[in-house]
């Protein structure tokens, strides 16, 4: 399913003295099958944006289209439940989506609600548990008696269990240990490709954006600040610095290296090993010319 925002405003507590415009005149189009990263500093409107994607909130002005579903201020789709069964959202804080007595019930809640057979749900859980790095021993535990990273994994499992077509991830790796961060992102990426999903990733990790996304949208104070291919947008240090952001660490290093040695090495999503070879090569070359 594709996603379109047309001149969307979102105002919290509209018509009250506390009215706060969190999104302003935002337009973009995400074709079906893309992997989009949404980036922006604290409070720039990322979580507000993604809550539109499953109809949790509707635009104050403008229109949002998710496939054939249309959301406006005075019109919501009649089949909201279907929208929610096709768009899975992993929220920023996992506690916000955990509520059942046990981990197993929590993961089963979504698919049960959407009428998936018990047998199939059990099968899904069996597959998902190892994929998110949980051990089966935790299935009968209360989701609130877990460590932060374990809760995060349960919340992710619950969303994967509904097998959504659009996967929306709001900082899904926050709280995961380094191996978990890598494995979970790889798992999302595999799933994205295998199941031909549309994926929207809110992240503070420029590294993940550059590695997995084919398109990035940068927000600043609720408006679109930049948009394009990650290797084009996320290399613009000056423009990013202006809105409190920075380039990925590898690019930061390459720029500092060039400044120090006068040797430009272009960024092309190379591996660290490849980068090391390029540095070695560039320095040798330069040495032999002196």
């Amino acid at each position: 399913m594709d996603i379109t925002f047309k001149n969307v405003d979102y105002i919290y507590q509209e018509n009250s003295p506390f009215a706060h415009k969190a999104i302003e005149n935002l337009s973009f189009h995400i074709p079906s099958g893309s992997f989009v990263a949404v980036i922006g500093h604290t409070g720039s409107g990322k979580s507000t944006l993604i809550q539109h994607l499953n109809g949790l909130i509707r635009p104050s002005n403008g229109e949002v289209h998710i496939g054939d579903f249309r959301l406006t201020n005075d019109d919501k789709p009649k089949n909201m439940k279907e929208l929610r069964s096709r768009v899975g959202v992993v929220f920023q804080y996992p506690e916000h989506q955990l509520f059942e007595e046990t981990v197993a019930k929590d993961i089963a809640f979504g698919p049960e609600n959407f009428g998936v057979y018990k047998r199939d749900i059990e099968k899904r859980i069996k597959e998902i548990i190892p994929a998110v790095g949980l051990s089966e021993e935790l299935l009968e535990r209360s989701p609130f008696e877990l460590s932060g990273g374990q809760m995060r994994r349960v919340a992710i499992a619950g969303v994967l269990a509904i097998k959504p077509e659009i996967l929306v991830l709001d900082e899904p790796t926050a709280g995961l240990d380094p191996r978990g961060q890598k494995e979970i992102m790889e798992m999302f990426y595999d799933l994205h490709q295998k199941e031909n999903l549309t994926t929207v990733l809110v992240t503070h990790s420029m590294e993940d954006a550059v590695k997995y996304a084919d398109h990035v949208i940068i927000l600043n104070k609720g408006t679109k600040y930049m948009e394009g291919k990650p290797e084009e947008v996320l290399t613009q240090q000056e423009a990013l610095n202006k809105v409190q952001l920075d380039v990925p660490e590898m690019i930061e290093f390459l720029y500092a290296f060039e400044k120090r040695f006068g040797l430009p090495i272009p960024f092309k999503r190379q591996s660290v090993k490849q980068l090391a070879d390029e540095i070695q090569h560039a320095m040798k070359e330069a040495g032999s010319h002196e």
């Binding site: 240990d177 380094p178 191996r179 890598k182 660490e249 590898m250 290093f253 660290v272 090993k273 980068l275 090391a276 070879d277 540095i279 070695q280």
Partner: peptide, 16 residues
């Protein structure tokens, strides 16, 4: 766990 990017890069530079 893991090590910072710079430590990984230093390691690879050593290997190269």
């Amino acid at each position: 766990l893991d090590v910072p990017f710079i430590a990984t890069l230093a390691d690879e530079l050593n290997k190269s």
